[in-house]
């Protein structure tokens, strides 16, 4: 349904160049959930925003393509589509976006009902009457588990969890086939987080809508996503089904990351960490960006960027050493 190929995105501010996304490729099919895990500065938010053309003026897509198949079967090239058509056809209709710190993006002077109405009104070509829109919003509210009486509440009257649910309702308003959610549960307490994640999974199944969940909280993704991509320094280091990523990660960074996640279900766990910190994306990086922190690195890692090694139909990883090891048997 959505296919990203060789995407490169940079931020250019005069002399400063930040290479936020480098050579990213992945696919997501209908009804699938994809989790993109990465730590601060890995480029995941930039990538999400570029799908929906929400980059700031300093952000530029410098390479790759994004192909999308709409619900009516139309094939689109997301990057080449003219702005008006993109806004009318794709935004909210086909692909919705829930931004990071979404709870702060609700306009404090309008009720949540009004804000969802705005989305409905601008997009629907067949003008819905006020009553019909209201009914649609009530429908959406019960879908996400909100009391329909809250439609006329202002954002400050709602709790964090309720605000997040109303944003999910907004994202679902026009029946998109894909929702991109950036850190949807990060600021929420653990019980609310659990309820929201559960709701997201249910909705996905119920409505047949796919989700891309971007987060640094890997554990939350384990339960909701079918496929997982691990990003580092603007690249996808490993991409595989959820089970494989969590039980048998291949890439040294994936291994380090997964091992550093504390698991409450284990009786005992020695917590580990990866020494060092992510590289600055302002400079051109020679070789593998993870090399300075990698225990398994060899000489070639400093010189050459590792290519993707396929491990299945869609799954892959990018590592010289692991590739060498597995090919030699």
């Amino acid at each position: 349904m959505l296919s990203i190929t060789d995407l490169y995105v940079r931020y250019e501010d005069g002399e400063n160049i930040v290479r936020a996304v480098n050579d990213v490729s992945f696919k997501i099919d209908q009804g699938e959930n994809l989790g993109i895990i990465g730590e601060s500065g890995c480029g995941k938010t930039t990538m999400a925003k570029s799908i929906l053309r929400l980059l700031p003026s300093s952000g530029k897509i410098t390479g790759g393509r994004m192909d999308f198949i709409t619900q009516t079967g139309e094939e689109c090239n997301l990057m080449k589509m003219p702005k008006k058509k993109f806004n009318r056809k794709i935004r909210w209709n086909e692909i919705s976006y829930i931004p990071q710190s979404a709870m702060n993006s609700l306009n404090p002077v309008y009720t949540v009902g009004d804000q969802i109405t705005e989305v409905l009104r601008e997009k629907r070509e067949s003008g819905l009457t006020r009553k019909e829109m209201r009914r649609r919003i009530e429908e959406l509210f019960s879908l996400v588990g909100l009391d329909p009486k809250r439609i006329d509440s202002y954002p400050h009257q709602l709790s964090g969890g309720m605000k997040q649910r109303s944003l999910i309702a907004m994202a679902l308003a026009l029946d998109p086939s894909l929702i991109v959610a950036d850190e949807p549960t990060t600021a929420l307490d653990v019980i609310v987080q659990f309820q929201i994640l559960k709701k997201i999974s249910e909705l996905g199944e119920q409505l047949g809508c796919s989700m891309i969940i971007i987060t640094h909280d890997a554990a939350s993704v384990a339960e909701t996503c079918d496929n997982v991509a691990i990003m580092y320094a603007g690249m996808i280091m490993e991409y595989d089904i959820s089970e494989n990523i969590f039980s048998a990660p291949r890439h040294p960074y994936s291994k380090g990351l997964i091992n550093s996640i504390p698991n409450i279900k284990l009786a005992e766990q020695k917590m580990v960490s990866i020494p060092g910190s992510p590289p600055s994306l302002r400079k051109e990086i020679q070789g593998c960006p993870f090399q300075p922190r990698c225990e398994e690195s060899e000489a070639i890692c400093k010189e050459e960027l590792p290519a993707s090694t396929n491990t299945g139909e869609d799954s892959f990883y990018r590592c010289h050493v692991v590739a060498k090891r597995s090919s030699s048997g």
Binding site: V190, I191, F194, A222, F246, I264
Partner: peptide
């Protein structure tokens, strides 16, 4: 409720049903 709501980094883990109601 708290301990069953904590996300577990295991895709095969089945959470128990959370019976807790409402919010603070």
């Amino acid at each position: 409720a708290l301990t069953s709501a904590v996300p577990v980094p295991d895709p095969n883990y089945q959470h128990e049903e959370l019976q807790i109601k409402g919010s603070i």
